[in-house]
Design a protein around this nucleic acid. Sequence first.
DNA 1: ATGCCTTTGTCTCAAAGA
Length: 260
Amino acid sequence: MKIATWNINGVKARIDTVLAWLQEARPDVACLQEIKSVDEAFPCQPFEDLGYNVATHGQKGFNGVALLSKRPLEDVRRGLPGDDGDEQARYIEACVSTDRGAVRVGCLYLPNGNPLGTDKFPYKLAWMDRLRRHAALRLAEEQPFLLLGDYNVIPEPKDARNPQDWLGDALFQPESRQHFRALVNLGFTEAVRACTDAADTYTFWDYQAGAWQKNNGIRIDHVLLSPQAGDLLASCGIDKHVRAWEKPSDHVPVWVELAA
DNA sequence: ATGCCTTTGTCTCAAAGA
């Protein structure tokens, strides 16, 4: 089965682009971030017309995540555990049954954390602590589990075309990178790096200053696989060409193919 | 560089994004 993640930067503005990509890529499960829509306003029908079941966890104006699945979404859970006072819609998780067993999928939109020096950066790090604690519980279940989405973390210098440009940015702070490593080190396989160690492997190009034309990209959308999911990994890819489409998101889809 | 674009809602400006 093919499982993908994509920060679409607004479902209202991106609906035609997302539908075109779904018809081309045909993922079995798609994790969407930054839907920027409340649940009641999310356009479920066009996705259902393509054969997808839809579950959303949105809020007004910003953030918001969604799961699309050709097979039924079971045990849908909205919100990241660990802080009942957190109002930001950044996590949704569900189970999908396959002929070869169940796969659990966690779709996340990790806080950006900029600008440094505001409460946004400690919120990012606290959110990452919560994510790590939740992931540890899931790993203890010893089932195929994928944690994928927009992590807003550049893991290594090679994951940026111009790493020096990001030294003062929350995405590339040592604390952000350390928190990401701590999550992976619980026992996940980072899928893209399991498939390629190539530089110039990016998932985001800013709208500004001709970043796409200069290939001034960064790799911040990641797919983490539990050991049981990692054993099923067949291939992975980044749909870079989508960035050149009309009305693109600033992110592109990342996907894995599992033997499940 | 308080810049560069793009989206959304408060809507012709501000806020957020990365």
